[in-house]
């Protein structure tokens, strides 16, 4: 199969949806003439022009709210946050207007927007630019959240997100944009991955590692080490989508392995891993041979220091150490 980078796969997905539906509009800071701060939208302005690819001022509350308002008239904005960390200046629009408008109108209105951009630490940009808010936004009923780890998943999920008639918050990673992987050729058919469908990235029998986004790659690396150095067979479940959540994929794996470590780059308190832990203990309690454990980002604001930043995040060493306490 042909190989594409994560950013190229995303761009191909965006391009295909721009072709499919004339109401799809890409907007955000530097997405058009600058070709995207992380080059995800490179070449799209040249191809589609100013109507479909729109540079906005640095004004997140303004343009996010504008996109939400436009979506009520049938426009389908795909809005880039240069960093998901900048969600904080648009928070009212993201959680009140986008998430609540359908409910508060008794179902009269829907809000078919996508907000996408990178949400990750590990790049030496300090605490203001290293937020991982997938758990935060998944906590709001009315919103959908996904976080792909591979180029193929990035393409398949962004296309589903754009077609979805509810607001989808799409969290990428600057550390993944350059990664290359197989992506099905468009000539072989429309490639979409439904939201809410997890993917088993590695089969195993001794322990389940659940992760999403860049943490999936850390989990896979840890699984490799566990096999080679400790003769432990780890299964890696990539959630891909946080809300909707593929509970069955997690529970089926736990029923097979009887042990689980949840790997999650967000913080331990009230994050995605906390939610999954609650689900597993409630629904697979009798299948567990050990407590549900977690590997999160160490509970502090993101440290800048390049020398130890990677140690704050989940990494293969920390995952292996955690697994060895119960397996």
């Amino acid at each position: 199969m042909r190989e594409l980078s994560y950013r190229h796969a995303l761009r191909e997905g965006l391009d295909e949806e721009l072709t499919r539906d004339e109401n799809v509009v890409i907007m955000g800071e530097e997405v058009a003439q600058y070709n995207g701060a992380y080059k995800v939208t490179e070449g799209l302005w040249e191809k589609w022009g100013c109507k479909r690819i729109v540079d906005t001022p640095i004004s997140e509350a303004g343009f996010m709210g504008m996109g939400i308002g436009a979506s009520m008239l049938g426009i389908r904005p795909v809005m880039e946050l240069m960093f998901w960390s900048f969600h904080s200046v648009a928070f009212d629009q993201l959680v009140n207007n986008a998430a609540n408008v359908r409910y508060m109108s008794g179902g009269l209105i829907n809000c078919p927007i996508v907000v996408r951009g990178p949400a990750n630490g590990g790049t030496g940009v300090g605490a203001t630019h290293s937020h991982t808010p997938e758990g935060l936004f998944a906590a709001f009923p009315g919103l959908k959240v996904c976080s792909p780890a591979t180029p193929a998943d990035a393409k398949g999920l962004i296309k589903s997100a754009i077609r979805d008639n509810d607001p989808v918050y799409f969290m990428e990673s600057t550390l993944l944009y350059g990664n290359v992987g197989p992506v099905p050729d468009p000539e072989d058919g429309d490639f979409v991955i439904p939201l809410g469908l997890a993917d088993c990235k590695r089969e195993g029998s001794d322990i389940t590692l659940v992760a999403h986004g860049a943490s999936v790659l850390q989990a896979l690396e840890a699984a490799e080490k566990l096999a080679e150095e400790h003769n432990i067979s780890a299964e890696v479940i990539d959630l891909r989508s946080i809300r909707p959540l593929d509970e069955e994929a997690i529970l089926n794996s736990v029923r097979k392995t009887h042990r689980i470590v949840v790997v999650d780059e967000s913080k331990p308190f009230c994050g995605v891993s906390a939610m999954i832990t609650a689900i597993v203990q409630e629904k697979a309690f009798d299948d567990l041979d050990a407590p549900v454990l977690r590997v999160n980002t160490i509970d502090a604001p993101a440290i800048y220091s390049p020398g130890i930043e990677k140690e704050q995040l989940p990494n293969a060493r920390r995952i292996v150490e955690k697994v060895l306490t119960i397996a």
Partner: peptide
């Protein structure tokens, strides 16, 4: 009629977006 919004000023970007939608179409 698009509401009816509870947060002071929060509806103003939405109104801007309605105008954007009209212009787009």
């Amino acid at each position: 009629y698009w509401g009816g919004h509870g947060i002071v000023g929060g509806q103003t970007p939405l109104g801007t977006g309605l105008a954007y939608g009209l212009k787009y179409k």
